[in-house]
Design a protein around this nucleic acid. Structure first.
Length: 467
RNA sequence: GGCGCGGUAGCAGAGUGGUUAUGCAGCGGACUGCAACUCCGUUUACGCCGGUUCGAUUCCGACCCGCGCCUCCA
């Protein structure tokens, strides 16, 4: 089966056809850097990271751009609250985001354009829209997009422009011709952050930056545009209106949107204040646990962030590492080797079907079971082969990248016993076992368990891990 | 109100017009001094009502329920 992707625009899965053979140009809406990234951001970043990794594994030449919105009202307000220049805030938050990405194993995009570095491109596009009467400067100095000039408005989110008129809020002192019109350029006071433009001192509206930057880096028409679940309307709708009005070309072939993250079965939102930052979550769970949790659902399904679900993800990941523990030195199978494995064909089939990571994970568990059975039965060659296959499949997801011993034992710097003390106690216990002092042996095991140390006895010796 | 998505076993979560998803938890068994790890087996699963069909969880229609967007939010 060839690659199929669900397209928000057509509301269905279609076979993917690249604009240029073998190449995929992809743009994903990144974060507005006024605060630390939260798990909703993590989901989008991990989802598209997996998609890009998979596409590359299948031989596609992917150009992946993901922007940073580093000028906007929220940034200005937060910087003002903090009493710092907005550039200081954004520089700090960008660095923090990059740290979070590295922790989660998210590879950097090929291009990471920032709004403030594309002010000229933005101004050029706004000017084109004004010249073509798709935009106008209002009495308050703002430049607005003239919705009614764009007949296709609403095609992405399935909205009727007339309905939008009924629902549009009319603000006090409204300067727009039409309440549905949205800002391309916002006039600013002299003491506010801004840039000189043909319409005076000001700053870009939110939507125009993505139109300008995507066109600048990927061309007027490109293959895939992605983002979070709340972006189809109005953000992406507005992008389409801007770009297609400015270029006269079809803007994007496939629109992809990740599903929402809920927290304890409630909508996660800024206004409810129930969102978790990535760095908070990383203090509680191993980064791969978070990654595995995210990959264990389809990227478009809503997922629920909860203690139980993360614990379950950890249990699953523990099994994989447990199975690989005696195969730490095995290298992942090459793509050529993988191609001969029946399970890989099923893996590709699952992923080609709109990136069905859940199905693919189920196949990884199948491999794991066979691996454990082979290892138990002493079929060493087969076990090593399966370990290599498992590592290769996991590698496509950016999982199982750690040495299992390290995964289970951690840094050893945490509270409690250090590795040497633990191993000494295990030795004492094994001495007791040899002399059939099982009560004494169990006492030591319980003592270790109380400190979160779990023992596993094998013929070759006793393994331990920190829970 | 408008637009859209979904309701699958204790929980999480794929998928399919007829044949075991998978994981976690539970139970039984093997292994073990006992455990843990692992393997094997296992628990009335497909919201409700009609229709199409030899046969529907899977297609169609109605209904009930949940959720998302429509407002800053990924």
């Amino acid at each position: 089966m060839a690659l199929q992707i669900y397209n928000t625009l057509t509301r269905g899965k279609r076979r993917f056809h690249p604009i240029e053979p073998g190449k995929i140009r992809m743009y994903v809406c990144g974060n507005t850097v006024y605060d630390y990234a939260h798990i909703g951001h993590a989901r989008v970043m991990v989802a598209f990271d997996v998609i890009v990794r998979y596409l590359r594994s299948q031989g596609w030449d992917v150009t992946y751009a993901r922007n940073i919105t580093d000028i906007d009202d929220k940034i200005i307000n937060r910087a003002r609250e903090n009493g710092e220049p907005f550039t200081a805030l954004t520089a700090r938050m960008i660095e923090a985001q990059h740290e979070d990405e590295r922790a989660l194993g998210v590879l950097p995009p090929d291009i990471e354009p920032r709004a403030t570095e594309h002010i000229d491109d933005i101004i050029d596009m706004v000017q084109i829209l004004i010249d073509n009467h798709y935009a106008y400067q209002a009495d308050n100095g703002d430049v607005y997009y003239r919705i009614r000039r764009f007949p296709d408005y609403g095609k992405l989110s399935g909205r009727n422009p007339e309905d939008l008129l009924a629902g549009a809020r009319v603000e006090i002192g409204e300067a727009k011709e039409d309440p549905r019109d949205f800002a391309l350029w916002k006039a600013a006071d002299d003491d506010e952050p801004g840039w000189n433009s043909p319409w005076g001192w000001g700053r870009p509206g939110w939507h125009i930056e993505c139109s300008a930057m995507s066109t600048c880096h990927l061309g007027e028409t490109f293959d895939i545009h992605g983002g979070g679940p709340d972006l189809p309307f109005p953000h992406h709708e507005n992008e389409i209106a801007q770009s297609e009005a400015a270029t006269g070309k079809h803007y994007v072939h496939v629109w992809m949107h990740a599903g929402a993250v809920r927290v304890d079965d409630e909508k996660m939102s800024k206004s409810l204040g129930n969102f978790f930052t990535i760095r908070e979550v990383l203090t509680k769970y191993h980064p791969e646990v978070i990654r595995f949790f995210l990959i264990s659902s389809h990227y478009r399904s809503p997922i629920n962030y909860s203690e139980d679900n993360l614990i379950e993800a950890k249990a699953g990941l523990d099994r994989f590492y447990s199975g690989l523990r005696q195969f730490a030195q095995i290298q992942p199978a090459s793509l050529d080797q993988l191609a001969t494995e029946p399970v890989y064909r099923r893996f590709v089939e699952a992923m080609d079907d709109d990136f069905n990571t859940r199905e693919a994970v189920a196949l990884m568990f199948d491999v794991l079971r066979d691996l454990n059975a082979a290892a138990r039965d002493g079929k060493d060659a087969e076990a090593r082969r399966l370990a290599a296959v498992l590592k290769a499949l996991a590698g496509i997801f950016g999982l199982l990248q750690e040495n299992p011993e390290h995964f289970f034992k951690g840094t050893g710097a945490s509270a409690g016993l250090d590795d040497g003390q633990i191993e000494q106690l295990i030795q004492q216990r094994n001495d007791a076992r040899k002399s059939r002092d099982f009560a004494g042996a169990d006492r030591i095991r319980d003592q270790l368990l109380a400190q979160g140390i779990v023992l596993e006895d094998f013929r070759e010796g006793t393994r331990w891990r920190r829970e």
